[in-house]
Design a protein around this nucleic acid. Sequence first.
RNA 1: CGGAAAGUAGCUUAACUUGGCAGAGCACGUGGUUUGGGACCAUGAGGUUGCAGGUUCAAAUCCUGUCUUUCCGACCA
Length: 478
Amino acid sequence: MKDKNFVKEITNIDDDFAKWYTDIVIKAGLADYTDTKGCIAIKPYGYEIWENIQKYIDNEFKKVNIKNTYFPLLIPENLLQKEKDHVKGFAPEVAWVTQGGEEKLEERLCIRPTSETIISTMYSKWLNSWRDLPFLYNQWCNVLRWEKETRPFLRSREFLWQEGHTIHETAKEAQERTLQMLDIYDDVVQNLLAIPTIKGIKTEKEKFAGADSTYTIETMMYDGKALQTATSHYFGQNFSIPFNIKFKNRKEEEEYAYQTSWGISTRLIGGIIMAHGDNRGLKIPPKIAPIQIVIVPIAMHKENVKEKSEELYNVLNTNYRTYLDTRDQYTPGYKFNDWEMKGVPIRIEIGPRDIENNECIIVRRDTNEKIVTKIDKIVETIKNTLEDIHKNMYNQCKKRLEEKTTTAYNLDEFINKMNENQGFIKAMWCGSEECENKIKELTSAKSRCLPFNQEKISDTCVCCGKKADKLVIWGRQY
RNA sequence: CGGAAAGUAGCUUAACUUGGCAGAGCACGUGGUUUGGGACCAUGAGGUUGCAGGUUCAAAUCCUGUCUUUCCGACCA
């Protein structure tokens, strides 16, 4: 009897995590495959999650003076060529427009994989004096990267994101901004998505193409693999020199501006699925859930069930995103399973028995716990329960992160632990790219970051045994 | 881009080996009975078997090509 029916619809999470993931995306109604290879259609239920994330972040940006802008989808080829590392990094996955109507173009146009180049060009046009600085601009848009292998939300060719681009008078100011934006992302991931994070800086090998330094928010998914949820880059003058973004400084000299960029994408939705989901389906963190509370009336035609559930709906919907499921063609049992798969944090059951006692039943998606509640106490109970669900979801992930993070002191130990635990490994690193490459070859794990929270767990590199003073978090990644 | 597998109704699939009217379950429409963990009865609709070509009297079935999806690697957010 148990779970038989779930298995029928969703692959077991421990049998085949990848299949489970795509099952959830489709069956929970987040997105669907389209006739355009590698590109998904995001359905209302999925898009609403994105909108809720967007609303929150956009508001956070505005608090720190970021303005929204919009730049072209198409970028002339010569702009892309200006920063060497950048073009090298992105060239393999850029799509080109070569023809307009019947006419072949003299210069190819690239469909933006990211907008540093076109934005830098405009910045160079707009900047004259130190008095103009800083430029603190963001855009919400789509980008295209010609991925070979694609997965909904995690790696689609076209995806939605925001990309912030700032230029500053001094290196210090730009660096501070890079970290300030990273902190905003950290807050979003922890306090909105209920996923614990590791903040850190990428190694030279892993940093963004063209960046001076790349900072990252790393998270761990159900299967122990890493997902980079956000990045923030400090460019120094790497783009401002080739793109000629210069200004007259306070000493009346020409100086190139100091630049940053930072972004999060719809990949976060993939992160939510993989960080929180279980065999019943999706679990959406309360703060971004399109539906926070679903009310399922039982035996709707009886007595005054319909009226009472409508009353309840009206009370709750003023403060929470609430849905009253009056669908007549489904039994309550069907609806319970349906909403659990869709990950709604709280379900309220209300039927004749409850109404008689002036009660209803609150069911938590995270624990499946049923709480009998007096109807006049409902608002307070809901408030506390939603807060508790967020905390509990966060703690569940935190527990996993801690359990699946181990330490290694030599290469054999590293390999064994990576194969056994499928999680993160904390280990000292000498700083050489050869060691990163070797570890990757042997374990397919990469350096996630040098965490801000550095500890000295030994004096020697886990790979080569030479002197090492950097702690690195390693893991396999999405 | 390398390795593997799969495409038949919205979904899961049968028929393919050995060529001969493409069948079922779920989902869906309609009418009714139901409703506290995936209800039931009746009835109805739904197919260019991924696409293109070839072999054949005849192709879902055999052959060739192609596209797509999934999985494992490499690459990336």
